[in-house]
Design a protein around this nucleic acid. Structure first.
Lengths: 112, 112
DNA sequence: ATATTATATGGTAATTTTGCCAAATTGTCA
DNA sequence: TGACAATTTGGCAAAATTACCATATAATAT
């Protein structure tokens, strides 16, 4: 693959990889409801603080979320609304897959 | 995180992970233009046949593409059009990020 | 100043992903 | 049938990701 094309795909991959983890998807989902501080997210997720913090850094570096420090708390919010659309697309794909699987199951039944 | 919620996110992650690789993004992009056989994709990508084949298997298992054997060639095509939308979303995020970065650069210049 | 709270960073072991080679499979054609 | 072409699968080493602990940093309160 040529070098320019490769870097175009690498830029896209960076975004998509940032979302390719259940914790980070959860965070995006949660932030789509509104701003949350790290401690709120950590409590919901249950992982170590440092783990949650690193997930947030990945999302931030990818340009998906923004952080804002107030006092000694850091609040995160969605920067790219398209991140939510990506989740929506994933849900559509899951729905379609289930539909086509039941269709196949139905065909198999009707063959008997 | 509770177990049901976790599995909901895992299903989404499976889809997104399937797209989280530059070669696989390229394949989705290419297939969005039309059906392609493995050898065509392999030639464009340049990786080993087995590598390309494994990428295709990942996309197929995620429900993003379909395969169809004709003669001794296997043709792949897009199953989930939403896969293309995800790429589109990634592009939007990249565009916004560039925009906000130049805005910040502009502010810094105007401070001088 | 010092203790405390909230978050980020460095280091590291465990796990997952990747990509190549070799071998197996499937279909075509002589 | 046997040779060949296209694709997939198994095995494995290298690279990347993940999650924890310990430590560092920053803001607040005493």
């Amino acid at each position: 693959m040529n070098i320019n094309l490769k870097s175009k795909y690498d830029a896209r991959v960076k975004i998509i990889k940032a979302m390719a983890h259940s914790t980070r998807l959860f965070i995006v989902d949660e932030l789509s409801k509104g701003e949350r501080c790290v401690c709120e997210l950590q409590e919901m997720i249950g992982d170590d603080f440092s783990t949650v913090s690193k997930h947030l850094t990945i999302l931030k570096n990818a340009g998906l979320v923004l952080s804002n420090k107030r006092g000694n708390q850091v609040f995160y919010k969605i920067d790219a609304t398209c991140a939510c659309k990506i989740i929506c697309c994933a849900d559509n794909i899951i729905k379609n897959k289930l539909k086509s699987e039941t269709k196949i199951a139905g065909l198999k039944t009707s063959i008997r």
